[in-house]
Write a protein that binds this DNA or RNA. Structure first.
Lengths: 166, 166
DNA sequence: AAAGTCGGTTGCATAAAAAGACTTACCCCT
DNA sequence: AGGGGTAAGTCTTTTTATGCAACCGACTTT
């Protein structure tokens, strides 16, 4: 059947994934961050098939993550640029990269190194609390469930052990 | 045909996505972070179908992101716990959430608020350079391509405008 | 005039997702 | 002893999604 979409879910993670969680999409974005902006460029560098690339670019444009703009006429040719929303996806890609660099080290080490322009050093990304600027880890955070609905669902499902009580 | 896998790509983003980039997988992880650890719990909370859940949990266990461990015998029942590698995926989920909170605000606002235990404040996640602890943005970073192969590919494909030169 | 480039569209074969029925193995209640 | 429930899956069928390759149109280059 049709793949379930996550649009209706009241969860920012789900809704974000609905826009950029399809197969290939994050890699397309990665390449655009690298400066590959044209159809043929993405095609050859990614090794994706043409119809899928067409489809993914279209959804990204529809969702205003990319902007499709002509760079010449006669014949008309287009390139895909990141919008402000798109540029703001960078932390997601960086986090994916950081995890891979840490937990999936190949023989040759990482293929890409990020240099932080401001300080000149190789940048190891770290997530911090914007307020106190200290590390933000799974263990150091308490999730405060604001939606009553979600809260009820979770407590029902978290406690699900043993027979149902009356 | 079979979906292309990203395992062979020399890119940490691609390899990480190969493990956790399938449809549903990040949401499964989200729920496990919320404390939903059992098959039936995930099933009812996510609304995923049983066969897909089985498949995804298996790949996550194979890749040592989750650990499947019995919590009772007679009959044997299992729960899925995050390993150290799994817990370290948290920044990825947080970045997804932060983007959604920022760019896809629903009528009711975010459903979940993160409280940073250390400082007691609602935690807005921010990515910083571990070295100088200042913000790490797409524009503030220079990607240093270490792999010669990748570097050649990119320059070929980035410059792809106009006719090929001899 | 022939060949190449770019940005697609179309058609076909196969793999993956969804829904739901079924299975195994136990527990509780009467 | 029989009926109902729980938990964690497996199996089958139907519908999509993905991949591959061929094709197209409007140009440019050789």
């Amino acid at each position: 059947m049709k793949r379930t979409n996550f649009r209706g879910m009241k969860c920012s993670i789900a809704q974000t994934l609905d826009l950029i969680g399809e197969w290939w999409t994050p890699l397309i974005l990665r390449d655009i961050f690298y400066g590959v902006r044209r159809f043929e460029g993405l095609l050859t560098h990614l090794g994706i098939s043409r119809n899928i690339l067409t489809d993914r670019l279209q959804t990204l444009v529809e969702n205003e993550i990319l902007e499709r703009r002509p760079y010449q006429s006669n014949p008309e040719r287009f390139e895909y640029m990141l919008t402000e929303r798109g540029i703001d996806l960078y932390p997601i890609l960086i986090s994916l990269m950081a995890w891979g660099d840490r937990w999936l080290p190949g023989e040759e080490g990482p293929a890409v190194e990020l240099i932080h322009k401001e300080c000149g050093n190789p940048a190891t990304p770290e997530i911090v609390c914007a307020h106190c600027r200290k590390a933000l880890t799974a263990r150091g955070v308490r999730a405060n469930i604001l939606s009553e609905e979600l809260s009820n669902q979770l407590s029902a499902v978290r406690a699900a052990s043993g027979p149902k009580k009356k």
